[in-house]
Design a protein around this nucleic acid. Structure first.
Length: 424
DNA sequence: CGCCTTTGACCGGCGC
DNA sequence: GCGCCGGTCAAAGGCG
């Protein structure tokens, strides 16, 4: 079987040899153009954005750059103090919603196999692959003043779609009158297709394909992906959330250019709170938010990022990320003199494809999904990053944000090679 | 026994 | 119309 696939693959490659492979274009190359590269120093200096700092300055990248995949590089092998190591220490996670207009981080469980689990960075934007381009629901904000890092809601998106189709239907009706049933049918089908849930994807460097994001998934399919320029046979796995009535899907595949990179694509929004099942481990969560009295109140200007939650926090430090009209700010609540914390722009927290406010309100205090940066930043990072500026000369920037890549010097080279490979 | 993965078959969309 | 491909179905089997 495998042999046959390999043969097929080989034949396919021979067929397509003159041209660049199709699938590579649809997946990886798209990610190439959408990735943003941000370096993180080996010392994990995190640039702390001041209240008046805009996103461009925070990330040292043009915010207008579109990016679909986010990616956390592993440094565990030779960089014991890597950002992700620190993340693992605290076992923080972060997550977000796929179709809300808010951005959030959420705590969630980390797999036991910590040697190879790397943090995933949720996206602020759906993936734009060839067959999914129609599903992109928002444009990347060109400035922090733009629609923030959120993607448009599906509702809005669907509204637009519906309008579009309605207009089309009307046109068809004008042209064909009662005879225009076929085009209408087509339009209807197109509408159905377009109305698919927005997708969000991110990259993870891991040798584990199916990262445990706390939700329960059932694999319902697997396909061989024949898109590697190096004749590497890759498989794409399809998962569905096992919760009844929840139609969230997850697609996992490895990058054809760098098999160590896992591309995970989520589609849809969970219709249920974060699972309390053993797999979710959520009961282990502590509730610093409660302790500090911070809330998960909704806000008009918050981020929305879809996705998975990894890295469960065991001892949360109050730390928040906020997005105001003109600035992104990280606030260290613990630095507050009286320990209190005011979050003027606190976001509504949407867990990985699920409105976590449900979970946090409907469940006991023992379960608290903060949806905050604190959930993924360790105290070390936090302390390091407070009032720390990036050493631009060393090219060791240090920011954390959805859709952003983290690299230290060595890893950045690897990453750049990776991108070069994709471009070629 | 229930849940999960595996895997070949099937279907629909799309490009040629 | 045909073939390719992505996505899904569903039967079979494994595992705890």
């Amino acid at each position: 079987m495998e042999k046959k696939i390999k043969e097929d693959h080989h034949q396919e490659q021979q067929k397509k040899e003159p041209n660049s492979t199709k699938n590579t274009e649809t997946t990886t190359s798209s990610s190439t153009h959408m990735m943003n590269l941000i370096t993180t120093s080996d010392h994990h200096q995190m640039e702390l954005a001041g209240n008046n700092m805009n996103l461009s300055s925070i990330f040292d990248i043009p915010i207008s750059s579109p990016f679909a995949y986010s990616y956390f590089e592993d440094h565990s092998s030779n960089n014991p103090n890597s950002f992700l190591d620190l993340l693992r220490q605290d076992q923080h996670q972060f997550a977000s919603s796929s179709n809300s207009s808010s951005f959030s981080f959420n705590a969630f469980p980390l797999q036991n196999n910590t040697n190879h689990i790397f943090t995933d960075l949720p996206l602020s934007q759906p993936v734009t692959t060839k067959d999914e381009s129609s599903e992109v629901v928002s444009t990347t904000p060109t400035s922090p003043n733009a629609t923030s890092f959120s993607s448009s809601s599906n509702e809005a998106d669907n509204d637009n779609i519906n309008k579009e189709v309605t207009v089309k239907d009307q046109e068809d009706g004008d042209q064909h009158g009662p005879k225009g049933t076929k085009p209408q049918l087509k339009a209807k089908k197109k509408q159905q297709k377009k109305a698919r849930e927005a997708r969000f994807a991110f990259l993870t460097k891991s040798d584990i394909d199916n990262l445990d994001d706390g939700y329960r998934w059932r694999k319902y399919g697997q396909k061989a992906v024949k898109n590697s320029p190096y004749f590497i046979l890759l498989c794409r796995s399809y998962y569905r959330c096992t919760t009844v009535g929840c139609g969230v899907k997850k697609r996992v595949e490895r990058s054809s250019d760098d098999p160590s990179i896992v591309m995970t694509t989520y589609e849809g929004q969970h219709t249920h709170p974060f699972p309390m099942t053993p797999r979710g481990h959520i009961g282990m969560l502590t509730s610093p938010i409660l302790d500090h009295g911070a809330t998960t109140a909704s806000s008009s200007s918050s981020f929305s990022i879809p996705q998975p939650r990894y890295l469960l926090s065991q001892h949360h430090q109050p730390y928040n990320i906020m997005y105001n009209n003109n600035s992104l700010s990280m606030i260290n609540r613990s630095s507050s003199s009286d320990g209190s914390f005011v979050n003027p722009g606190s976001s509504s927290f949407h867990g990985f494809g699920c409105d976590m406010s449900q979970a946090s309100t409907s469940t006991t205090a023992a379960i608290r999904d903060h949806g905050l940066l604190q959930d993924i930043l360790t105290s070390k990072i936090r302390s390091d990053t407070i009032n720390t500026r990036t050493n631009e000369e060393d090219n060791k920037c240090t920011t954390i944000f959805p859709g952003v890549l983290f690299f230290s010097g060595r890893d950045r080279l690897i990453y750049e090679e990776f991108l070069t490979g994709l471009d070629n």
